[in-house]
Design a protein around this nucleic acid. Structure first.
Lengths: 131, 131
DNA sequence: GCTTGACCTTCCAGTAACTGGAAGCCCCAT
DNA sequence: ATGGGGCTTCCAGTTACTGGAAGGTCAAGC
C-alpha cells in the first residue's frame, strides 16, 4: 500500500505519516521505486496513533504506548499510569478553561458592544488580578 | 525601571518582556548603558498583556486589544467581537476536552492496573472509532 | 511514443509563544 | 580590584505538524 491509501485508511494526512516515520514511530518498507510500502501492521499502528493523538496523548506518550502495545507481556499498570496522568492534566486544563470562560462570558455580557468608547472588557484587563 | 523590576511588577519573566519588545508589543526607552528603561506606561501595558494572555488571548489578539486600548475613541464593539470569538473557541475546547475526559476516565476505571497483560486501554485504542 | 495528471520523493522553512544557554558588558559593595 | 548579580545580544530548541518547491514515477489516453 502506498502512503495515500494508508492516509485514507488511518485518517492521517500523508505529511503526518512521513513525519511519524521521521521520528521513528513507524518504519514502513520501501518499494524499488522508493515509494513507502505499508504493511497491515503499519496501518494498524497508524490507526492506533491517530486514536491516541485524538485523545490528546503527546507523541512521546504515544511512543511509550506503542511500545507497551507491541510488548503484550507488560503489565497494564504502565499504561494505566500514563492514561491517569494524562487524564489529570486534562481535568486541570478543563478547570482552567472554565475559569477563563466564566470571566470572559461575564465580560462579554457586560459589554454593550455599542459605540460607547469606554469598554468594560478593556477596563477589566487593566485591573483584573493576576492568578 | 530596569527589566527585573518590571518583571516583578508585571509577573512576566524578563525573557518574555524582551520577546514582547522584539515583536513590537512594547517599546521601552534605553538608558545610556543600553539597559531598557521602562516607563509607567510600559509597565501598565505589560500588566495588561499578562492579564490578556492569562485569559488565553493570542499574541495577535493582544496586539489588537492593545491598539484598541490605546485608541479609546474606538467603539467597544471591536473588543467585544474579539472577546466573543475567543470565548466561543474556549467553549469548543472545553467540550472537546470533556469528551476526551469521559473516554479516558472510563478507560482508567476499567483498567485494573494489575499485572494482567490484556489492557483495556490499549484494546480500546485499537478499536475506538475516530471522530 | 508522448503527454498529462495524479502520485510519490526529499528538503527547507514556518507556525506560537516562548525558554535555555552562551558570551560578554555593567554596576555596586566589599 | 574583585565578586556577584543584573543586564545585553544572539542562537537554538521546544511541539506536532504543515506548506511549498523541485523533481521522479506511474497509468491512461491519443
Amino acid at each position: 500500500m502506498n502512503i495515500g491509501d494508508v492516509a485514507k485508511l488511518s485518517g492521517l494526512p500523508p505529511k503526518t505519516i512521513r513525519y511519524y516515520e521521521d521520528i521513528g514511530l513507524i518504519s514502513p518498507l520501501r518499494d524499488a521505486n522508493g515509494y513507502r510500502s505499508f504493511r497491515e501492521s503499519d496501518t494498524h499502528k497508524l490507526a492506533f496513533l491517530g486514536r491516541a493523538r485524538a485523545l490528546g496523548f503527546t507523541i512521546e506518550d504515544c511512543r511509550t504506548l506503542l511500545a507497551l502495545w507491541d510488548d503484550k507481556q507488560r503489565a497494564s499498570g504502565d499504561v494505566r499510569a500514563i492514561a491517569q496522568e494524562h487524564l489529570a492534566q486534562i481535568e486541570r486544563k478543563i478547570i482552567d478553561l472554565q475559569a477563563i470562560q466564566e470571566t470572559l462570558s461575564h465580560l462579554v455580557r457586560e459589554c454593550s458592544g455599542d459605540g460607547r468608547p469606554d469598554c468594560p472588557i478593556l477596563k477589566t484587563l487593566e485591573v483584573l488580578p493576576l492568578r
